[in-house]
Computed example of a mutant assay.
Amino acid sequence: MNFQHILFSICDSGVALLCLNRPAQLNSLNEAMHLELQQALAEVIANPAIRALLLTGEGRGFCAGQDLFDGSVIGSGEPLDLGQTIERFYNPLVSALRDLPKPVVCAVNGVAAGAGANIALACDLVVAARSAYFVQAFCKIGLVPDAGGTFFLPRLIGTARAKALMLLGDKLPAEQAEQWGLIWRVVDDELLREEALMLARKLAKAPYSLALTKQALNQSATNSFNEQVALERDLQRKAGQSEDFKEGIRAFMQKREPKFNGR
């Protein structure tokens, strides 16, 4: 695949590395980048050699959100329908990351603003550079938080903090985001890519059951208790019939590390 706005490669140990690559624009998103992201994520889903995804940004920022100079936003003087942009690009993107049947690690380098912050939160494990920060910048330009932000934030940090971030638009430093439970870990800037790749490699060796675990956790937000335990039963049935479960039992009996194949 030849991309202009992203970098995409399959690293060793089954990790796909996906980098937003418009560093001069702080990796802000335009229509062309969205289309390339859709292609890359389709490859991640379809390719069995890819066992985990690492998402990050090139340059000094992770993602500054929507590129406000993009033609799909500025338009040609006609009444603007941002709902169409969300429906075509942002909702499919965050849904794909959240529902991807493979672990997704996000390495946040620098600013994660607006939709950029919420795209990071759609990933499974977020590691941030110490200098990074998150900002729900929508109120600064008279818009509503999107890209799943109004879903993710109150569930991660509570309604009071989510409201404050979204209504005030203040910056949230990475270390405070870690303390609040918004992200998994903060590391020194120069170690970010290395630490995130190490984490992705570890997840790439994990069993098929991780995809089922993601499904269970995603549905727990809206399921009743009875619905959730019934889902656990059904997913455990699938896990128990997998090759990886058989390998896990063999490895346990033989007192060795299991070698999972993701099936």
Rank of each mutant, 00 (worst) to 15 (best):
L153T: 13
V94L: 06
R263I: 02
N30S: 14
A117H: 06
S76C: 02
M198P: 01
L7Y: 07
A251I: 03
D188M: 13
F152Y: 15
Q25S: 10
T85K: 12
A112K: 02
D188Q: 13
L125K: 07
C106V: 12
L17S: 15
A122Y: 06
Q254Y: 09
E195Y: 02
E190G: 10
L35G: 02
Q84C: 06
V104P: 00
L192A: 00
A49P: 01
P145G: 03
R250K: 14
A216K: 08
G169Y: 07
E190L: 15
G110A: 04
A64G: 04
E175P: 00
L121G: 03
A49F: 09
A160L: 14
A120N: 02
G75P: 05
G75F: 10
L121W: 08
H5Q: 13
G240E: 06
L210F: 13
E31D: 10
R155F: 10
A113S: 15
Y208D: 14
K171C: 12
I141Y: 03
A96S: 12
S28R: 05
P173I: 07
D146H: 08
P258K: 09
Q136M: 15
D67V: 03
Q215A: 15
F69C: 07
L153D: 11
K163Q: 14
E36L: 00
A115K: 07
K140P: 05
E178L: 08
G181R: 09
D170M: 12
A230V: 11
S220Q: 11
A64E: 12
E247P: 00
T150M: 13
A230F: 14
L41M: 10
Q66C: 11
D99K: 15
A200R: 00
R237H: 12
G262N: 15
C11Y: 03
R22F: 05
S76Q: 04
A52E: 06
R88K: 14
L212Y: 04
Q38R: 15
